[in-house]
C-alpha cells in the first residue's frame, strides 16, 4: 500500500500512460501467486511451539541433511567457479571448431528438465554405466552416495558461472592488458593482477547463484543420491518425507529454514550484482 501512495506523489511528471494499471496488476499477481502462499508457510509454523519447531529443524536426520546439502552445494559451486571461468575464458578468448555449438550447449542444464538430467547421470555413473564401469574396478563409486549429489549439482550450476562471467570478459578492455605488458608484466601477472580483479565480482555472483540454486535442487539429485537417511538425504527430500507422513507442521518448519536461507542468499546476490555494476561502471 505504501508503494501506491508514495508512487502517486510522482504522478504529475509522468508522460507515459499505464502506470497504475501495470503496477496494480503486477502487485496483485505477485501477491496472489507468491506473497500470500509464502505467508501461509510462515503462519503454519506459528502452530508449532518454539521447542517443537526447534526439534523439527534440528533433529539428527535433518542436521545430517543440512550438512550434505550445504557441503555438496559448496563443493559443486567451487568446482563450477573453476571450470565455469575456464569455459567462459575459452569461449571469449579463443577460436576453435564448433565454438558456437559449444556456446549453445552451455545452457543445456537450464533447458534440460532436472528429472531427465537425474536419471541420465545415474545411468552414466552406476556400476554398469558408460563411465561407472571404468571407475568401479578402481573402487570409485560416484552414484548412490554423496559424490553423486555433488556431480548432479555441478551439472545444474555450470551455466550460472559461465553466463555471468562471459559478458564481463567480452567487455574487458584489451588496452589494459597491453598496458600491463608494456610495463613489463608477464602474462600470468597480467591475468592475476589485471584481468582477474575485473572479473572477480562476476565470478562471485556466479558462485552465489550456483550455490543458491544447488541448495534448493531436488529433481536431479534424488535419482543419483541413493537417499540413505543420515548419509545421502538432501534437505528438500526431508520435507517430502515429512509430507508423506502427513507431518505438515514439521515439513513447514524445515521449509521455513530453507526459505530464510534462500532469501538471505537472494539479498547477497543482489548486493553482489550492485557491486558488480559499480565495478564495471555500467548504469544500475
Amino acid at each position: 500500500m505504501a508503494l501506491f501512495s508514495l508512487a502517486r506523489s510522482h504522478k504529475a511528471a509522468r508522460v507515459l500512460p499505464g502506470f497504475n494499471i501495470t503496477l496494480g496488476f503486477t502487485l496483485t499477481y505477485l501477491s496472489l501467486i507468491v506473497l500470500i502462499p509464502l505467508s501461509a508457510l510462515v503462519f503454519k509454523t506459528f502452530t508449532l511451539t518454539w521447542p517443537q519447531f526447534w526439534e523439527a529443524v534440528t533433529g539428527p536426520r535433518v542436521m545430517a541433511s543440512y550438512k550434505l546439502t550445504f557441503g555438496a552445494s559448496l563443493i559443486a559451486a567451487l568446482v563450477n567457479v573453476v571450470f565455469g571461468l575456464l569455459v567462459a575464458w575459452v569461449l571469449v578468448r579463443y577460436n576453435f571448431f564448433g565454438k558456437k555449438v559449444v556456446d549453445a550447449l552451455v545452457d543445456l542444464p537450464f533447458a534440460l528438465p532436472t528429472a531427465v538430467a537425474g536419471i541420465s547421470l545415474t545411468a552414466l555413473l552406476a556400476g554398469n554405466g558408460w563411465v561407472g564401469q571404468y571407475l568401479e574396478p578402481w573402487g570409485i563409486q560416484l552414484a548412490f552416495n554423496p559424490n553423486g549429489v555433488v556431480i548432479a549439482l555441478i551439472f545444474i550450476g555450470l551455466p550460472f558461472v559461465v553466463r555471468t562471467v562471459q559478458p564481463v570478459l567480452e567487455d574487458a578492455e584489451k588496452e589494459l592488458e597491453e598496458a600491463a605488458t608494456c610495463l613489463g608484466a608477464t602474462r600470468w601477472q597480467t591475468f592475476s593482477r589485471v584481468i582477474f580483479p575485473s572479473i572477480a565480482p562476476a565470478l562471485l555472483t556466479g558462485f552465489a547463484m550456483a550455490f543458491a540454486r544447488a541448495i534448493g535442487e531436488y529433481g536431479s539429485v534424488i535419482f543419483i543420491a541413493g537417499n540413505m537417511p543420515m548419509v545421502s538425504e538432501i534437505t528438500p527430500l526431508i520435507i517430502i518425507g515429512k509430507l508423506e507422513q502427513y507431518d505438515y507442521a514439521g515439513a513447514t518448519a524445515v521449509a521455513v529454514v530453507m526459505l530464510v536461507i534462500s532469501f538471505v542468499l537472494l539479498l547477497v546476490i543482489n548486493a553482489l550484482q550492485a557491486w558488480q555494476r559499480r565495478h564495471t561502471g555500467a548504469p544500475a
Binding site: P37, L41, G216, P236, I239, L259, I269
Partner: peptide, 10 residues
C-alpha cells in the same frame, strides 16, 4: 531462489 519443493508445499 525458493526451492521447488518449498514452492509445491506452499
Amino acid at each position: 531462489s525458493v526451492s521447488p519443493v518449498v514452492a509445491g508445499l506452499i
